[in-house]
């Protein structure tokens, strides 16, 4: 992930402040999009790469904390940095608890904001990478037959073919064939690799918990 794929959104109802933050970011070669209100921002086309949002807490209409919640519900993984003209401790705590990267009081040092942006985009990139991997795994999982999926769930607990066969009431040879197909479709060479992929897709082995596929 390079800086070129990532995008920084700035939302502040004060145009002068908005432009200033935009200039600061552009001086460090970030791609920036600016909005004067939460609703305009929510109406935008979604960015496909990692992104972060520099958000003024005291917006008219939908305020910063409400927008943070709305973004969390959409699950696009934008990381949020709050800036505020009058910081109160309770709202700061609330914002950080809800997962904000940082909380800066105006006037802040340019250095501090740029640090926060770097950190936010790092987080966003990691999350974005994880998400795209998960998506890939799920696409592969979708090609499995129900039986193959059952086998996969048991393979990742570390069971041998013999044990799986007895649990599923079939022969070891059949399981061996299934296991081969699962490995092929999932694009892995070992049970360990398969376990890692399954974990990424959120599959919990049945021995530790009831089977779930979220």
């Amino acid at each position: 992930m390079t800086i070129a794929d990532s995008l920084v959104y700035v939302i502040d109802d004060d145009i002068l402040m908005l432009k200033a933050i935009g200039r600061l970011l552009e001086s460090e070669d970030y791609s920036v999009e600016m909005f004067t209100g939460a609703r305009e921002f929510l109406a935008r086309a979604t960015h496909t790469g990692p992104s972060c949002v520099i958000l003024d807490l005291n917006l008219p209409g939908l305020n910063g904390l409400q927008l943070q919640q709305a973004l969390a519900e959409r699950r696009l993984g934008e990381q949020i940095i709050f800036v505020t003209g009058g910081a109160s401790v309770p709202t700061c705590v609330q914002a950080m608890k809800a997962g904000a990267v940082d909380y800066l009081s105006k006037p802040f040092r340019g250095e501090d904001l740029l640090c926060a942006v770097e950190q936010a985009l790092k987080r966003a990139s990691e999350q974005w990478l994880r998400r795209s991997q998960r998506k890939k795994v799920r696409e592969r999982l979708a090609t499995l037959t129900p039986r193959e999926f059952d086998v996969l769930k048991l393979v990742i607990t570390g069971m041998l073919n013999k044990q799986i066969a007895s649990q599923l009431g079939t022969t070891e040879v059949t399981i061996k064939v299934h296991r081969g197909r699962v490995m092929e479709k999932m694009g892995v060479k070992s049970a360990a690799e398969l376990a890692i992929l399954a974990q990424r897709a959120g599959i919990v082995p049945p021995s530790t918990d009831s089977t779930s596929y979220t």
């Binding site: 004060d14 200039r23 600061l24 005291n58 003209g85 009058g86 006037p107 802040f108 040092r109 340019g110």
Partner: peptide, 25 residues
């Protein structure tokens, strides 16, 4: 007073951030 601090911090933030951006550029 809390709101007045906000009314002042806003332009001060604009000044500092603009100056910072200009210096970097």
């Amino acid at each position: 007073s809390g709101s007045l601090a906000h009314e002042l911090n806003q332009p001060l933030g604009t000044i500092v951030t603009n100056a910072d951006a200009a210096l970097r550029s």
